[in-house]
Computed example of a mutant assay.
Amino acid sequence: MHDARDTEGLTVGQAGARVGVTVRALHHWDEIGLARPSLRTTAGYRLYTAADLERLHRIVVHRELGLGLDRIRAVLDDPATDVPGALRAQRTQVAERIERLQRLGAGLDRMIDAHERGVLLTVEEQATVFGPGWDPEGPVKARLLYGDTPQWQQFAERSAARGPEDWQAVTDAMTDLERALAEAMDAGVAPGSSAANALVERHRHVFAAYFPLTRQMQVCLGRTYETDPGFAAHYDGIRTGLAAWFRRIVDASARAHGIDPDTATWE
């Protein structure tokens, strides 16, 4: 319903405010002949009548449904246009768009959960994938410590896209690497050798399943593996002395790339 002022004409600004579009859009529609104001003031300003506003409202409705301006013109002005057919086609496109948005919404929900929980597996799934010694609260604790870091964000992005099979592949790759590290240590592979350096590179590649690991970050991680009681227990549980040996091969590789392990920082 339009009040009596509509019959006297509205300026472009008033018309735009009434139908919820910008003045620039109204000027464009005027220029292309899609919706031209019918009146002019004595000063030459164009005014929109009630009929003009009704056409603007119809244009806005069709535009919100996704029709292009040329198609809107045909629907409004071409008597040969199959309006129901055009609207049905647009309805199909809207349904497809809704489906895409629903998938996007589900993906965003998983991303939010991944940022908050770290690993999107049930407790039972985590025990199956990571082993009975796995602490399901570990990722939550890690978020409290590292949730504001770029690495946690990268980890969450990867986690959001992973199910049990994906995590199993990550776990298997890390288990294979740890076995190879233990075998190399048993075989007497020397830090700085080509075989040791290859294992260091393999560690960076496998670890990238969590987040990208620079050489300096790898030095810091090797230091943590040796000094942190939890990590040290894990690696020394595979082979006694493995945590210290791993740190030595990482440090030797870092030196070969111009990095001083004693001053390396997490960057």
Rank of each mutant, 00 (worst) to 15 (best):
G188Q: 07
R18P: 00
A156G: 08
L145K: 07
R162I: 01
A25F: 12
H234C: 01
A252N: 11
T149Q: 12
Q90N: 03
R162G: 05
V83S: 09
D176C: 01
W245S: 05
L87G: 00
D135I: 06
G13F: 08
H57S: 04
V94H: 05
F207H: 10
I32Q: 12
V123E: 15
L181S: 02
A161C: 02
P191G: 07
W266D: 03
E116M: 05
V219I: 06
W29Y: 15
R248Y: 00
E201S: 02
V189W: 03
A169R: 13
V123Q: 08
C220S: 11
Q126W: 03
T92V: 14
V60T: 14
T175P: 04
Y225T: 02
L65P: 04
W167Q: 06
I32F: 08
R158P: 02
A80H: 14
A43R: 15
I259H: 04
G118K: 02
A160R: 09
H205K: 14
G9H: 04
A114L: 03
E8T: 13
N197G: 06
A156P: 02
A187M: 08
A51E: 14
E124K: 12
E267Y: 03
E8H: 13
A142I: 03
M174N: 04
K141R: 15
L199T: 11
R18I: 12
A160E: 01
G230L: 10
V250P: 05
A232G: 00
